[in-house]
Nucleic acid binder design. Structure first.
Lengths: 340, 340
DNA sequence: GTGGCAAGCCAAAGCGCTTTGGCTGCCGAT
DNA sequence: ATCGGCAGCCAAAGCGCTTTGGCTTGCCAC
């Protein structure tokens, strides 16, 4: 059933039927009702390819997905996707993933735009002065950044969590417990979220007259193995930390393993606070010692991004507004007062 | 730059240019060269929307993605996606994710087909007599199942790992080490992979005159917490197992925690073998006791699925062929001879 | 009455491709 | 000489929508 057939059986023109269905004003209410009715009864659905050719709108949102032998999409992505799906599901919004290599990202974005494959995209894991954001801004494709960049001379729509405050507060709590040597096991600092976290921790320490020297920082891809290595090298050092801030639950697994391997205990010897993105399959309260965490659901962020993306597509949202969510600090058994 | 302009500047008809570009025979070699040349020089790229309207081919592959408050997309998905991306990347193949609720799956598939959004889809986590497979088969959309169904009276394209053999071999190894009470901590048995695994383990036990009674089986969503609970309840029972087969590395985290909590040791008190889908962020060799695993890269499967999907789209592959991959059994420190 | 205007409808022209159904000119066969 | 066939090209008709630019009709004001 296509427009032609439908309009024919209603003895109306395609124009009118189209307008009626799309809510244009120049159709009488009665006609609109008749049309809507017939459309429903015959299960008419406009052909998206045709609509797309005519309007240039795709009805989909996009994500340019870096892949490659050395690139691991991390498990956070799937949580984000769940959230996105939660919203998109109810709105018949589909998501287009365009795989790309890291070097070809720009090409891929250009292709996606030139092909009008999607009406909007979201950008994840932004870096400082992220070129993707510059590009999208200049190409004029609606987009939302999950996270934030830094050092860009224009505003852009984004949603982020307050990583700086989260790690500031976590560090402050450790300081209040009397810790002096606090270490940070961070994600890759080429990404802004890690930069913000380091900044937050550092500010808290400075406020107490302490510092966060490079030798008490590790910055690595967030795997269990890297968590282990980082904790190991920190704790075997000459002045081992009495408390560790860790950027991910997965890394925390390795941190806990390292601490145990060294015959140390949590929180007796080492206090530990980790950031929790809320995975359904790994919960901080189920660690051998329940973990104190800074918590923010990445899934909720995905849902919000989808919602705002939809709003931008329909021009209900237009300003380059940023949204920064506070992060919970959830205290559990993994922290204690410093010994000395 | 569109076809019209390009053909105009070549002083050729759109027909000829189109044919030249698409490799049709009724164009002289010289003309074809000229056209290809000019197209490249001017960066001409056929508008996919137009092509799509004309041909009905979308140039994308699809995945109907179940989401919802109670549905967790699991981290395996992201690995699979990486693999898919590895192939798709080089072939300008994009992936469309259509989120859906569990109940609406059929509707969503029908929509995707009716809209001609994609040229092929892949289906994951099949259940016995999976209705999605029946539906796709009858709708005539090319598809590939990652995994296998059971009890369908027709053949279909799929790629799967040999779950039965994997768990058979793992169980046999434990038997050879003298274990008599072997337990299975499985994924949800509404999915065939879990059924096959149980079957493999059971057959091995039967071959040794032993059995796998229901009280030594747990079948749950594959989270750390469920691994813990399952192991806990098994080991606190009256006749605790001396060896455990576990369907996932994430569950194994919980299993290890439970064993340790009970003051037991691996492999002294309990031998443990887990299935490893090869996550970059969690490796069996890095467990406190390195884990013996049945190993198969889910990422590699994703890559292969994409490859075969592309082959089916281009009609290079047409028969409903199944492909079953063998699984490695990698022995590490987590198994030992049974004590008694 | 006539002009103006708004409401409601329509025919037809795109959107940018693919594909059908020719048409032309040249060659070898008859 | 004539004809059939083939290689190589083309004009035009889709694909199924949206949108532009009218065209009626009825009503009100003057």
């Amino acid at each position: 059933m296509n427009l032609k057939q439908l309009s024919h059986m209603l003895a109306l023109s395609q124009t009118t039927v189209s307008r009626a269905l799309n809510g244009y004003p120049e159709v009488s209410e009665e006609t609109r009702r008749r049309v809507a009715d017939a459309a429903k009864r015959h299960g008419y659905r406009p052909n998206p390819s045709a609509r797309r050719l005519a309007t240039g709108k795709a009805g989909m949102i996009g994500y340019v997905m870096p892949t490659g032998a050395s690139v691991d999409i991390d498990p956070h992505f799937v949580e984000f996707l769940s959230g996105l799906g939660d919203y998109a599901r109810g709105h018949e919004l589909d998501l287009v993933l365009s795989p790309t290599t890291a070097d070809d990202e720009e090409t891929t974005y250009r292709r996606v735009v030139a092909n009008k494959q999607v009406d909007a995209v979201y950008v994840s894991s932004p870096r400082p002065a992220d070129r993707r954001i510059v590009l999208l801004n200049q190409l004029g494709l609606p987009f939302i950044v999950h996270g934030r960049s830094e050092g860009l001379d224009f505003d852009y729509a984004h949603i982020d969590i307050d990583n700086e405050a989260a790690f500031h507060d976590a560090a402050r709590l450790l300081l209040q417990l009397g810790h002096k040597r606090i270490a940070l096991i961070n994600g890759d600092t080429s990404q802004t979220f890690a930069i913000f976290r380091e900044r937050g921790a550092r500010k808290a320490l400075l406020a107490s007259g302490l510092s966060l020297p490079p030798e008490r920082i590790r910055s690595l891809a967030m795997t269990e193995e890297n968590g282990f290595r980082a904790a190991n090298s920190l704790l075997r050092g000459s002045e081992p930390p009495t408390a560790i801030l860790c950027s991910s639950l997965i890394m925390a697994l390795g941190v806990v393993r390292a601490i145990r391997d060294l015959g140390l205990s949590i929180p007796g010897d080492v206090s530990l606070i980790a950031h929790d993105d809320v995975f359904p399959w790994l919960k901080p309260e189920n660690f051998s010692v329940p973990l104190t965490t800074t918590r923010s659901s990445i899934r909720a962020a995905g849902e919000r991004v989808a919602e705002r993306l939809a709003a931008r597509i329909s021009r209900q949202e237009t300003e380059p507004r940023g949204e920064v969510w506070p992060v919970d600090l959830v205290v559990r058994a993994s922290i204690a007062t410093a010994k000395n």
